[in-house]
């Protein structure tokens, strides 16, 4: 089995174990950071949300990048995900924009 793949990228159990350890530590850190941020005194809702989400994104980046191998994927997959992210952003962004751009005095 293993010899089939050694040509491309040799897989070593130990190195993966180490990688996993780092990932777990990263998850621990980001999670505690998020919780910490959420308990900080209230200095403005937007800043708080932005901070928590930023940390969550770091966490997601670690999981996607290292566990899902997204950091070393094929171009085909990047293209596909690029489209998805774009449409996701469109859905969210335009909907929120539409919600905020209401004629004065109207409610929804």
């Amino acid at each position: 089995m293993s010899q089939l793949h050694q040509v491309e990228h040799p897989v070593e159990f130990k190195s993966y174990l180490r990688r996993c350890l780092y990932v777990f530590i990263a998850v621990l850190c980001t999670t505690s950071l998020m919780i910490g941020a959420s308990f900080l005194p209230n200095y403005g809702w937007t800043a708080k949300v932005a901070m928590i989400l930023a940390v969550a994104c770091v966490n997601a980046f670690v999981v996607a990048g290292y566990l899902m191998h997204l950091l070393s994927e094929k171009k085909m997959i990047y293209t596909l995900l690029g489209f998805t992210i774009f449409f996701f952003a469109g859905l969210m962004g335009l909907t929120i924009w539409a919600m905020h751009d209401m004629p004065a005095g109207s409610s929804h």
Binding site: F87, G90, L91, L94, W97, A98, H100, D101, M102, P103, S106, H108
Partner: peptide
């Protein structure tokens, strides 16, 4: 086709900026 959908919603009281978009 993913970014034109609200032309079905012009009469829902959308604002002018978003309608224009």
């Amino acid at each position: 086709s993913f970014i034109v959908w609200a032309h079905h919603m012009y009469l829902t009281g959308m604002g002018t900026k978003i309608s224009t978009f």
